[in-house]
Design a protein around this nucleic acid. Structure first.
Length: 769
DNA sequence: GCCA
DNA sequence: CAGTACG
DNA sequence: TGGCCGCTACTG
């Protein structure tokens, strides 16, 4: 026992130094990993290009062919999906007993429910106290909530149940959905305990049996011979990832799931002879070939911070030299951008600025600049239309302004819903290039980090309102919603027309695959992450091997169709079909096309229809009608799928939305539009009583940013806006207690809602934010 | 991501 | 209830 | 440091 601990301790420090080295030069991937990425890149290029390719045939059969290139990524066999279910059945103790929690082993806010309260961390001293100073702050945050939950914590801890494990933000949960089994599977020693904690903070769940695991983490020093018996006992080992403890560490360092098949992670854990049930697809030749122990391969390139502080020219590994349009500032801030980029390039969701930033001289210059801005602002406070000057007001200024100015043009102006924003604005905008790249960043964050996403979009909105090109960070900082980080990015883009962080993110195969999966209806970040980590890479993989919900299957089968834009004329044609059918059922029902169509868009992602009728006070009143309509349209072949209806939802009395798919019938296809081709379209129907039409119009017209903004504004005024109306924000502490009465202020009249909110009316086409 |  | 979707 | 839209609605 003593020997064991000593060995582990040694191992700990060994890994620790590795971490430190990594942190110092955190883009120092070793050659193996880079090679892996290259392979991935090549692979993906080969397969993904067809993702948007449309087949001339009806899309029912138009699913693109999966990648044909073979790739040594772990690829779960088809049985794996069903394994999950079985696992849960077998070992329910590790999970919440709630039936809905199946398969959601990550995300453990309710860990207390779990069994095995005690955790074994005999040492009160936090593990991170060993760590390199640079690491400490972050580590402190991560491990502060070290706790027990479903962990197979076995040692006889004195520690009782205490603070729960604190999960890191979603975007850092690189292990989300994965289930780790350690050999040995306890946290008896500090090293492993810390590793387990780190893994779990990043979304991994620590399971007690080998059978449950997706990943088996074997202590360094153990060989295949050592774990052989363990693995033997598990018939499901094929398909599992078996790696040594360096793997999760490196993943944490790089903030991303690395290729587990690299030799350094499987060293000694695999034998060429006869592994119990080798999973060929997860055993690359290289790994199988050499099982002899090599020395710990130290990361070769450890760029120190000093090394990074190079002149821009040296930094740039692109062909073109940087051009200095802005003499005095550019060099400095370019370095800043480069440094930041370096730091951030590891993983898209990297948080918080780094300390280097605080040392940058950006802020000092700002003060002087700010006084100027202040002066400018003074002159024209209140005139919203003087686009250039007034919108570059400094935040501090804004605050003053609030106090000084009058109601109408004050703080409300900072809400997106107050601003003009029009669709075509970006086209001829001087910041178009910047906007475009930032927009791509939004795409990378979409569904992943909602808040960051929001920030980028807000920044884009700000840029769009400029009449002058923003070229420096200093300048950008003056815009509302643009802080240091975004300002640096804007400057980087202005300087050399590119954003390295974006490029880096774009070329990550994981991101490409993730983006692909996220486009499937019914697939969110959780499911997409799970699938990616399970090794699925194409839609074909999903269709054949993954277990899909009904909706997800539809989303995949008609992926190409559903991701295609709908031309405006077709939106009208589709609506006409619905109207016509409805006319036979109840001619007094009215339809309003909402969504981007109502905002004037040339094309839409889907068709949004508000269904309403005079003298209706509840969406319930329209339910019978809708049922008939649905049946009729389904029989006609117009509606092709129901994605979200309101099946057993009568209890809440709402039942107001219907989501599904439809196809424009050939009979309704305009002759002048070329050759007819049936394309599945997403259609959303919203049942709206007359009394709620105004609010529903606001909601269904959007855009989303506008909605959120105006709702936020409402809440700041002590009101509440949703798709059913504007409400007085009464604090109803008791659940649903008599909230039916009196609270609604307005729901019927769209303009009236604007008025009550003190917001100047905006036409739908002015609601692009 | 930004901001109070 | 958590995940996903809607604008 | 916590909030960032909706006491949204629907699915499983």
């Amino acid at each position: 026992m003593e020997e064991r601990k000593l060995a582990e301790k040694i191992a700990y420090f060994k890994r620790l130094s590795a971490i430190q080295a990594e942190e110092n030069g955190d883009d120092a991937y070793d050659a193996e990993e880079q090679a892996h990425r290259e392979r991935c890149k090549t692979f993906h290029n080969a397969t993904s290009t067809s993702s948007r390719a449309k087949s001339p045939a009806p899309s029912v059969t138009g699913l693109r062919k999966p990648g044909t290139v073979s790739q040594p990524l772990p690829c779960p066999d088809s049985s794996q999906g069903s394994d999950d279910l079985e696992i849960i059945k077998v070992t329910p103790r590790n999970r919440s007993s709630r039936p809905g929690a199946a398969g959601i082993a990550d995300k453990t806010p309710n860990v207390e429910e779990e069994i095995i309260p005690e955790s074994a961390h005999p040492d009160p001293k936090p593990a991170h106290s060993f760590l390199h100073p640079l690491l400490r702050p972050r580590m402190t945050r991560q491990t502060s909530g070290l706790t027990s939950d479903n962990s197979p914590s076995t040692s006889t801890a004195k520690r009782k149940k205490q603070a729960r494990l604190k999960l890191l933000p979603e975007n850092q949960q690189i292990f989300r959905g994965l289930r780790f089994y350690y050999i040995p599977n306890d946290d008896a020693n500090r090293v492993r305990a810390a590793q387990i904690t780190k893994a779990r903070e990043r979304g991994a769940s620590w399971v007690r049996t080998l059978k449950e695991a997706t990943h088996v983490i074997v202590d360094e020093g153990l060989t295949y011979q050592d774990i052989k018996s363990d693995l033997m006992s598990d018939s499901s080992s094929p398909g599992k990832v078996i790696v040594n403890a360096n793997y999760p560490i490196d993943c944490v360092i790089h903030r991303i799931l690395l290729n587990p098949n690299q030799e350094k992670y499987v060293r000694n854990l695999r034998v060429a002879e006869t592994p119990p049930s080798p999973n060929p697809s997860s055993l690359p030749a290289s790994a199988q070939a050499s099982s002899n122990s090599l020395e710990i391969k130290r990361k070769q390139r450890k760029r120190s911070r000093k090394d990074q502080e190079l002149p821009p020219e040296t930094q740039s590994d692109y062909g073109e030299p940087l051009q200095n349009n802005t003499p005095s500032i550019a060099p400095v801030t370019t370095i800043a951008a480069a440094l930041v980029e370096d730091e951030l390039s590891q993983y898209i969701g990297l948080v918080q600025g780094n300390s280097l930033y605080l040392e940058m001289p950006l802020e000092e210059e700002e003060d002087s600049a700010q006084s100027e801005a202040t002066k400018d602002d003074e002159a024209e406070s209140g005139s919203e239309s003087s686009k250039d000057e007034s919108s570059r007001k400094k935040k501090r200024r804004t605050r003053e302004k609030i106090q000084l100015s009058q109601e109408d043009t004050t703080w409300q102006d900072s809400f997106a819903c107050m601003k003009g924003g029009t669709r075509g604005a970006a086209v001829d905008n001087p910041n178009a290039a910047t906007i475009e790249l930032l927009q791509l960043m939004v795409g990378m964050y979409e569904h992943r980090d909602d808040w960051r996403c929001k920030s980028y979009r807000r920044a884009i909105t700000a840029l769009r309102q400029q009449t002058r090109k923003i070229t420096t960070a200093k300048e950008a900082m003056k815009l509302p919603g643009i802080g240091k980080s975004l300002a640096a990015k804007i400057e980087e883009i202005a300087a050399d027309g590119r954003l390295r962080k974006l490029e880096h993110a774009q070329q990550r195969p994981e991101n490409k695959i993730l983006n692909l999966f996220l486009k499937v209806y019914g697939v969110g970040i959780g499911q997409a992450n799970k699938w990616v980590s399970q090794g699925y890479r194409t839609l074909e993989d999903l269709r054949e091997k993954a277990k899909l919900s009904t909706n997800q299957r539809i989303g995949i089968e008609h992926f190409d169709d559903l991701n295609e834009r709908i031309p405006r004329w077709e939106v009208e044609a589709l609506a006409a079909v619905v109207r016509e059918a409805a006319g036979d059922i109840d001619a007094s029902v009215e339809f309003i096309i909402g969504g981007s169509y109502r905002r004037g868009s040339d094309s839409s992602g889907d068709i949004d229809l508000i269904i309403t009728k005079k003298r209706t006070r509840s969406s319930q009143n329209l339910l019978p009608f809708l049922e008939k309509l649905i049946k009729r349209l389904t029989d006609d072949g117009f509606l092709t799928a129901a994605l979200a209806s309101f099946s057993g939802n009568t209890k809440k009395g709402h039942g107001s939305k219907w989501h599904g798919c439809c196809v424009l019938p050939e009979t309704a296809f305009p002759k002048d539009k070329g050759k007819y081709r049936p394309i599945w379209r997403r259609i959303d129907l919203l049942l709206v009583p007359e009394t709620e039409l105004g609010a529903a119009l606001i909601y269904f017209t959007g855009n989303d940013i506008f909605n959120r903004s105006i709702r936020l504004l409402a809440s700041k005024k002590g009101l509440r806006l949703n798709q059913r109306g504007l409400f007085k924000d009464v604090l109803r502490g008791k659940r649903g207690v008599t909230y039916t009465e009196g609270d609604p202020l307005e729901g019927r009249d769209e303009k009236r809602i604007f008025e009550l909110l003190g917001v100047k009316w905006r036409e739908p086409h002015e609601r692009w934010c």
